[in-house]
Structure formats: C-alpha cells, structure tokens
C-alpha cells in the first residue's frame, strides 16, 4: 500500500502542476452552481435541501470524470514513463490503485469546493445536514465508479479521444439503465431485463444516498463496481504489456 500512496501523492501533485486541476474544478463549480440555481429552481422550491444540486452531479461527472481519466494511462504511454513506472519495484496493482486514489481525492476536493451551496442552504433554512452528508458520500461513490471505469478504458487505448468517448458511453450506460425511460421501456417489453438493468444502475442507489439512506447493499454495490473495474484495469495493463 505504501508504494500505492507514493504514486497517489505524485499523481495528485501532477493534477495541480498542470492546468487540468483549475480547468476541471472551475468548470465543475460553474456548471454545478448555475444548474442548481436555474434549472434546479433552488430558491423557488421553498425547501432547505441540496436535492437540485445532487440531481445534477452524476450528469456532470458523466462528462467531466472521463475527461480526467482519458489521459491516465494514455499519457504514461505517450511519454514512455509507463516503462519507468513498471520497471520500478512495485506490483502493477499498486500503480492502478495509486492512480485511482489520486483521481478520487481530486474529485473529493472538487466536491468539497461546493461548500458555498451548503453554507447558503444553512443560512436560508434548517436543512437536515445528515441527509446532505449522505448525498455528498453518494456523489463521491458515483465519481469513484466513473473513475474506475474510465481508468480501465484508458488502459485499453493509446488514443485519448477514444478513451473519452468509450468511458462516457459506459458510464452513461451505468447511469441511464436506471432512469425511468429505460426501465419503463424494458418492463413493457423485456421484463426479465428490466430488473437486471435496474440492479446494475448507479442511479437508484445514488438516489437512496440523496434521501439520506446509506444501506449496506448499496455500499457493497459501489465497492464491487470500483473493485471490479480496478481489477479489469490491472488485467488490461498486464495483457497489453505482453503484446
């Protein structure tokens, strides 16, 4: 784990050494803020909570997180540093976990910087801060799933555009299968698939978090999604190394 943390620290510093960090965070905050106050109808709903904000976060992450992950392995390949990294005395999973942790930490920082919303809602009313905390945890877990999926896709291809498009598509699939349009369509025609689609989706599980519900099955779901994607990531790297 020590080597993984050393790699995570290097990666996290690299985000802030390049414009990636500022662009990502600024765009995320602007979009999250404007969507919450305009389409989200934050003021006129007359409720002291962050539901409108939480509703948008998975959709923002759907595009922003793959932008973060598309360069994760592609960049190492382009610079040739992958050869350096994998000839250092580490296990491949340590590099995979290190990169994931850094990106996750980065998303946590971006989420933490939305604190003015929390201050606002606390100034205007008396929200249930436990529910808000659960919502933030849900956001972080959704980011974790997208990151792990995006990182695995980035290991598949040298081309960053392909990595981005594939990651967005896969994350969209994970999100959309739980949306009412898809579940209603499926339960009308293929009821057997509807349950599976709903079970695989992050959407409903994320909604539980925004309602303040942190359940063990949901935690297991997010942990196994992340674990599986990281495992796939290591397997892809190992496979491509042999070619």
């Amino acid at each position: 784990m020590r080597a993984a943390l050393v790699i995570a620290a290097r990666e996290l510093a690299a985000y802030f050494a390049t414009p990636v960090a500022s662009v990502f965070i600024v765009i995320f905050l602007i979009l999250a803020g404007t969507l919450t106050f305009t389409i989200g109808n934050f003021f006129n709903r007359g409720q002291a909570d962050l539901q409108p904000f939480f509703g948008f976060v998975p959709w923002l992450f759907l595009f922003l997180v793959p932008a973060l992950t598309m360069r994760l392995w592609a960049e190492e390949r382009r610079l040739g540093t992958i050869e350096l990294l994998f000839t250092l005395p580490i296990e491949p999973w340590q590099a995979v976990v290190g990169k994931f942790l850094a990106a996750w930490m980065f998303c946590a920082i971006a989420l933490a910087l939305t604190f003015p919303l929390w201050l606002t809602v606390n100034a205007l009313g008396e929200p249930d801060n436990g529910v808000i905390l659960a919502g933030y945890i849900g956001c972080l877990l959704v980011a974790g799933v997208y990151l792990a999926v995006g990182a695995a896709v980035s290991a598949l291809t040298r081309n960053q555009v392909i990595a981005f498009v594939l990651a967005v598509s896969l994350c969209f699939l994970l999100t959309a299968t739980g949306s009412p349009i898809v579940t209603e369509f499926l339960s009308d025609r293929l009821p057997a698939l509807a349950e599976i689609a709903r079970g695989l989706s992050v959407t409903e599980r994320f909604l539980d978090f925004t309602r303040g519900l942190i359940s063990l099955p949901n935690l297991v779901y997010f942990a196994s999604c992340i674990g599986f994607a990281l495992f796939a990531n290591a397997a892809v790297l190992e496979h491509r190394r042999a070619a």
Binding site: R10, A13, A14, L79, G80, T81, T87
Partner: peptide, 25 residues
C-alpha cells in the same frame, strides 16, 4: 534501469522526480 529515451514526468522538478523514485524504492 535507464529506458530508451530516458522518459521522465515532464511537469516534475528534478528533485521531485528523483525523490519520487527514491520513495518508491
């Protein structure tokens, strides 16, 4: 090991980069 082309992380300083490989070791 010095890989072909001596790859290194371009945004790191020399000290930062060497400290990174040292920490890994």
């Amino acid at each position: 090991f010095l890989p072909e082309g001596a790859p290194a992380y371009p945004d790191m300083t020399v000290t930062g980069f060497l400290s990174f490989t040292g920490r890994i070791r």
